[in-house]
Design a protein around this nucleic acid. Structure first.
Lengths: 160, 160
DNA sequence: ATGTATGCAAACCATTTGCAATGAC
DNA sequence: GTCATTGCAAATGGTTTGCATACAT
């Protein structure tokens, strides 16, 4: 992530903590740093491990509290996927398109201005939008080639 | 649900159980009936209660097993929403658009041909689509009116 | 008769909570 | 000094599992 974006996120956090009179703890800033280092989707565990490797261990309770705060501040977004909960840094528009394989669970991020425009064109009655998530489900080529008797993601997870 | 759709779903289940040589248990058909009676989103608990009220109690283990089977057969779809896991009968196209309030969690189903077309227009490399889910997040008018200091959904859940 | 499906209770795992100790203000 | 925040360990809640029993074939 570029320095400017990082500075913006830090400013968002600073601003919130100041105006809401909450405390500027080292944990909150360390977690923000770690979040900025993550690329793509990550779990709470990933985040904890990253912090540990930077010699700044943080308890799970604090990780959950802080990530919830970041969600409120639109610093990160939460995805509840078939494979479990994943977090991701919010991009500017807050719009996320994903392609998900029902067999192996592989997730590919998609950029589509057509969809962004189409969703923007939907008329919503008395509703202030804050963003959207699109998940396209199907089967990726790798799994299509491998599995003649295709196992579902569900069954795979069961067997692991 | 109309009788014809119901018969189709039953035929899907019959066909699968016969060809895969699995058993046609009364539980599986009772659960299918109950699923057909549900309108909109429902939880596993909703389903269990519905069956109980019809004097056909089914264990949670069987409910989970059977709903997983139904997902595999595309009889139902699973949504993992901020408020928890919800199930829904699969419609023909398997495409689902939802508007979700970040404050109260209220979910409104949306029909949008524009979005269906737009998602259909996305070029995916080597990927066989099976359907999509779209979630538009924001704040509904009721919550906008109520909350000047708007509580997040997260905080509300915490406080209950 | 065979072995799959069910029910029960225990196990599991991610997330949340209660409470004492810490530390930002 | 005050009270929000943290860490820890226990609790929670939804989902899964192991195993003995029931039952569809």
């Amino acid at each position: 992530m570029d320095t400017e974006t990082k500075a913006q996120l830090k400013a968002t956090l600073d601003g919130y903590l100041e105006t809401s009179r909450h405390r500027k703890t080292s944990e909150r800033y360390a977690i923000l740093d770690a979040v900025c280092e993550m690329t793509g989707h990550f779990t709470i565990e990933d985040l904890g491990e990253r912090l540990l490797s930077r010699n700044f261990p943080v308890s799970r309770a604090t990780l959950y509290n802080t990530i919830s705060l970041f969600i409120k501040l639109h610093i990160v977004i939460r995805h509840r996927l078939p494979a479990g909960t994943r977090y991701e840094i919010c991009d500017m528009e807050n719009n996320h398109c994903h392609q998900i394989c029902n067999v192996c669970g592989k997730i590919t991020e998609i950029k589509s201005q057509i969809v962004i425009d189409a969703v923007g064109a939907i008329k919503l009655q008395r509703f202030r939008r804050e963003g959207f998530s699109l998940y396209i489900y199907g089967i990726c080529s790798t799994c299509m080639a491998k599995n003649t008797r295709s196992k579902t993601l569900m069954e795979q997870q069961k067997n692991k």
